[in-house]
Every structure is written in structure tokens, then in C-alpha cells.
Amino acid sequence: MPRVRPGRIIAWTLLFIGGVIMVTPLLFMLSTSLKDASQVYDLRIIPAAPTFDNYIEILSDGRFTRWFVNSMIVAIIVTLSNVFFDSLVGYTLAKFRFRGRYIVFVAILSTLMIPTEMLVLPWYLMASQFGWLDSYWGIMFPGMMTAFGTFLMKQFFEGIPNDFLEAARIDGLNEFAIWWKIAMPLVTPALSALAIFTFLGNWTAFFWPLIVTTSAELYTLPVGLSSFAVEQSIQWEKIMTGASIATLPTLIIFLFLQRYIVRGVMLAGLKG
């Protein structure tokens, strides 16, 4: 039995304190959202008289629910699109041998070097010419596929033995079915990693939705929150409630799926 050394205890304690400091902003945000205007300047973490009035007021006005739904729609559709197309392209580049394969791969990979900010103005121009400003499609179109996802999926598909696929081919499955029914189930960890990253990225995205959306009905949560906060003329309890509403969903999902999310992040980080 190894004895617990004092160094270990100190390290553990420091790590624990650090961890608590890390979540302090979140705790303050939550606690302030449960205070009314008269308690805001009382900086205790546990509210003296907790109240859900802020939540009731903000949620009953309907905008936050709308923004929440918008964010969900956008993040889910973009995630599905990435899971489908990135893996389809990754699979094709990993498992098919044809002339031009390498060029396609390099071309797609090269887009990683181009910052979104550079494309934003042409996208804006494109969106205004095609009437995509202020629409779900306008928010979503730039992110429907990503080079990062394609690269990630290619890495994972390369790890699948060709025999599996050959066997399916002999069984008479067509290529699409081979990909969808045989190859895809073999890379589910990678798919979940891709899905987690894409969802999180789109859920928290601010820059492009801020530019492309016009009317409050189409805001995503981050953009809505930002405009809401400005409009509240610095009523901190209201702003913190809005921030909590924007932040809590991902935190709650995390509590349930912690294992998968952490594993997904590790996978994406290592292979990516």
C-alpha cells in the first residue's frame, strides 16, 4: 500500500482550489441571476432571498425561447451536415483510389489556412445578392462543411481495414451502402467527436451570426444575448440571467455526457 505523501495532498488541494476558482465566474453568474435588483450589490454567492423572477420575466417575453430555438436549429442542422459530408468526403479520400484524389485532399486542406474573417465580406456580399441575409440558411451556409472535420474523418477511415469493405462489396452492397452501413458504424467515436465540436462551435458562434442576421427573430442566442444586454442598460441581474440561459444548456449536457465529450475532445485533438 503506497502511503499518501504530503506533496500529493498539497498538489490535490491546490488543484481543487484552482478548479473552484475556474467555476467562480459561473457561480456568480448563477447566483446573481437569482437575485432581485435590490440584492445585486450584495456580493454574497448564496442569495439572501433567491427568486426566479428574472427568469420568469425574461422567458415570458418570448425572445429568449425564440433565440434558443434558432440556435438549436442552426447548430443541429450544421452538425448533421458536417457529420454527413465531412465523413463522406473523408471516406472517399481515404478509401478510393483515383486520379485527382491528392489534389482534392490538398485543396480542401488548404482552406484551413484561410481565416473565416477574410471570407466574411464576400459571404456577406453573396448573402445580400442571393437574399440570404437574415435567414437560417444565411447563418448556416458557411459552416455546412469544414476541412477540419474532413481531415479528422479521413484519419479515422484510414484505420479501417479494407477487408471489411471488400467483403461488403462481394456481398453486393453498393458503395454508398458500404460507407453508410459498414464504414460509418466503425468510426462512431470520431463521429461523436466531430458532432460535439461542430455543435459547440455553432452554439457559441458570434461573429458571423452578428453580421448576417438583421431581425431579432432570427438571432442566435449569443447575438440575442449581446443585444439584450445592451438594451437592459446595465441591469446586471437581468444580464446575468440572460447569460445563464445562454450558458446552462451546454453545461447540463456536459454533466450527462461528460465521458463522451472529454473522449471526443481528446480524439479530435490528437488526430486533428
Binding site: S128, G131, L133, T214, S215, A216, V230, E231
Partner: peptide
């Protein structure tokens, strides 16, 4: 009636009118 937040109001109006909306 359609409304926008003040911060982006000018840009949004300009962009929409020029896009024929």
C-alpha cells in the same frame, strides 16, 4: 413594423434597401 437593435440599425437598413428589400 420591423425593428432592429440600435447598434446595427444603420447597416441593416443600408444592406436591405440595396438588396431591394
Amino acid at each position: 413594423q420591423t425593428t432592429f437593435p440600435y447598434a446595427d440599425y444603420q447597416t441593416k437598413v443600408a444592406a436591405s434597401i440595396l438588396a431591394g428589400q
